[in-house]
């Protein structure tokens, strides 16, 4: 039998910098909403995982590609608000993408 690894996607998610929550607490909020909307079984299968982004108000979260739509819906319907600013197949590429974004502009809301 082939040792098949399921594809994952990694997302960079920006949140309000004035937020009182810490990274792991925000991750818990997202997880809670995912479980509420799509159930515990889908949550376990989606394998959501929080990664250290090393950027101020940006979270890196990974999930299985198969459950990406569920994850994006959960994110869009979670309070506090989160915005997906980048999506990639590897953490390395994601970090590179986020580095190339003008984070200062995002924070100040300049188009």
């Amino acid at each position: 039998m082939l040792n098949h690894r399921e594809k994952r996607r990694y997302l960079a998610i920006i949140y309000d910098e004035n937020n009182v929550y810490r990274h792991f607490q925000l991750h818990e909020k997202i997880v809670e909403r995912f479980k509420e909307l799509f159930g515990v079984i889908h949550y376990e299968l989606a394998m959501l995982k929080l990664y250290d982004s090393k950027f101020g108000n940006i979270l890196f979260v990974g999930c299985k590609l198969k459950y990406l739509d569920y994850f994006l819906v959960s994110l869009s319907l979670t309070q506090p608000s989160f915005t997906v600013v980048s999506l990639s197949g590897t953490i390395k590429k994601l970090r590179k993408n986020v580095s190339s974004l003008d984070i200062r502009n995002i924070k100040s809301g300049v188009n």
Partner: peptide, 17 residues
Amino acid sequence: SINELVSARSFESILKL
């Protein structure tokens, strides 16, 4: 606010649902 914006990909996920 800027943090409440939704990406095109997220819109698509809701539409698919």
